[in-house]
Amino acid sequence: MKAAKIDWEEVKRRLAAADAAIALAWEPDEAEMARRLKMRAALVARENEPEQAVEDSFEVVEFMLDKARYAIESRHVRDIYPLERITPIPCTPDFVLGIVNLRGEILSVIDIMKFIGIPLREAVDFSRFLVLVRGDMRFCILADAVAGTRTIRKADIQPDLPAPMEADHVHGIADGQLVLLDADELMQDPRLIVKEEI
């Protein structure tokens, strides 16, 4: 019991320090405020530094799927939604997960991994819908997370793919790990038009 003996003064001191710290967090003093503002300013400043020519680059939406990073041209992405309940549809190919109601609009949901033939490495954690549009074609693909938009220079794209990444509709690899999907090809794939008869 002697080892577990508590120095109550120490405890009180620590408690008071914690109280003060919390109070400080809610009402930061001038120096803290200045530090935070400076940090934000630094962040903002960094974001602004690379300015690329429009011709040499294009905007993509980067998303995570099965621990791997993927990107798709943002002009094909209409918008992004949090995960909703998917209603399975019978008599459809296995890459069609079902349909979903997004703000009154009924859209089919495609498992892009199965569709393009990338083998599943680990369990996926779908949490986002990406609504892709090309002309009349509209459908959803699922992603684990959406990182955001970014600009990719065409020069950075490497068309060669490593062995496990070999699949259809892949434009190339950027930044070593980012798999750039070819949205035009993907959208024109005739497999997407499901016309099953039973």
Binding site: E47, N48, V54, E59, V61, S74, R75, V77, R78, D79, I80, Y81, P82, R128, V146, G148, T149
Partner: peptide, 23 residues
């Protein structure tokens, strides 16, 4: 976050005018 991504996509669609909004 989602809204920000959507906003970015919209800004991209707006082209040169949406540049500031994209930031």
């Amino acid at each position: 976050s989602i809204l920000a991504v959507n906003a970015a996509i919209e800004a991209n669609k707006a082209g040169e005018h949406g540049k500031g909004f994209s930031v």
